[in-house]
Design a protein around this nucleic acid. Structure first.
Lengths: 258, 258
DNA sequence: ATCCCGAACCAATTTGCAAGTGGTTCGGTG
DNA sequence: CACCGAACCACTTGCAAATTGGTTCGGGAT
């Protein structure tokens, strides 16, 4: 007898019995299968043959395994890093801007609908503060407070938490110089004007206008960031500051282009 | 001059020696101070006096302490309320759905632009799995995997992290029954069809169509959730149970099979 | 009486260790 | 050559002990 597959002698047997087990609804409610050693003994085959069968099932997506944990039914649950530091390492300023462009216009729209008059008063005061702020540090603080107040006024605690998360990443010390350069000069005045427009739209309950104004504002911020990142500095290079973001961003920039 | 503070006899002594220690740069590179018991012995005072001195330093912001951890130099690191449990307590299903309605259409649009062919293949396979899944648990798993794969394909790690955060909150065990009821019955088939439409749009690189299809899908999901929440106890357990007029007090109209 | 110290206890955290699990390699057996 | 049993490695989990800040209590000095 010529067997074309040399490794399918008892592994196929194991595979069959395993499929039978899985379909037999023996583990209907169970998420976790017995350990390989036990399972092998139950089926009556060796552990090696069992593992070959499990590999097939894993490739099919019917089970997933993890060393030290066990073998489980269903698709592999996706891992998720919630650590802020980890996230800051894995992202870069342009990604953050993209996220802001998705979230903050929605926040402005919601704020236009749900903001209390108290919220609007606070926004107006903050806008003045932002406009009259002289130093870069102050501008950044007031600007951050302004955006966050809009996020608060939107009245969705989960969205607010997301905004805070993004904002903390944005304020990462590594990108501090970058932000200062992107904000310097005449852009600041345009930003102040755009802030006024957003707040006016919110105050007049014009949801669509608020969303539009916020998107316009963030698009300009994004543009400024891009300019600073792509055509920067003849001097005052700080290698440490630039190294980490540049490597990450260049990689992603390629993805943008494709 | 009489001493107005009766509790400053040896605590002040401890405070002086502590300040000396901190300024002496003895712990220059160190972030962590010795345990209170050791430190008290070193300075030569009692633990109680030491703790009073430490309280002052903590109030000044020069150190921070945490039970079980130790005493550390510098300001207390900012506590990030990104804790999932805390967040789950403060939000509710409708907020989560609103957030999904803001984020996932954007993810679908981005995925239509950036998805690799491998991504699209995975999406197609997942759609089949979701459609052919029989039990509620399986449907939920495959559905979650499908939505997450779209989020992955969008190619923005920060947005993906946000999606994961929202998804974990959504999958909170407290809302499990709610989700099962919202998914039951004929809605599942519509969902499958809507999934196909989203994936088809992504595969054909129609960004706007993908965004629109995803928004339509989530709006239906939201509507289902609303129905389940506002018209509780569908009582579709068995036909026999249903005709019992026990629920006469419920003036809500019973959902007929439409 | 007041204040301080030492000791003991409580609560939160970290650490160390053992058990359990998948991943791998080895020699033995037919 | 295929298979098995065994042993070992790598990773995870769970638990108990040790560590540490937080608190209370009794004794003693002033």
């Amino acid at each position: 007898m010529s067997n074309p597959d040399p490794s399918a002698d008892s592994s196929n047997l194991a595979l069959g019995r395993l499929r039978a087990l899985l379909d037999d609804s023996s583990f209907e409610g169970e998420q976790r299968l017995p350990p390989e050693r036990v399972l092998a003994a139950q089926i009556g085959i060796g552990r090696r043959a069992l593992r070959r069968a499990l590999e097939v099932l894993e490739a099919e997506g019917r089970i997933w395994r993890h060393q030290g944990k066990g073998t489980f039914l269903g698709p592999r649950p996706a891992h998720s890093p919630t650590s802020l530091e980890e996230l800051t390492k894995r992202t870069h300023p342009l990604e953050v801007m993209d996220v802001r462009l998705e979230i903050e216009p929605a926040l402005a729209r919601l704020a236009a609908v749900r903001a209390t008059n108290g919220d609007i008063e606070r926004l107006l005061r903050l806008a003045e503060k932002t406009a009259s702020s002289s130093d870069a540090d102050g501008r950044e603080l007031w600007d951050s407070a302004l955006h966050r107040t809009i996020a608060e006024a939107a009245g969705n605690s989960l969205l607010l938490a997301i905004f805070d998360m993004v904002d903390r990443i944005r304020q990462d010390t590594t990108w501090r110089l970058l932000r200062e350069r992107a904000r310097s000069g005449e852009r600041q005045q345009i930003y102040v004007e755009q802030h006024r427009r957003v707040i006016a739209a919110i105050a007049q309950r014009e949801a669509h206008a608020a969303e539009h104004a916020m998107r316009e504002h963030l698009e300009l911020v994004r543009e400024g960031l891009l300019k600073v990142m792509t055509a920067p500095l003849p001097d005052q290079v700080d290698g440490q500051m630039l190294k980490a973001p540049v490597t990450a961003s260049t990689k992603k920039e390629i993805r943008h282009g494709t």
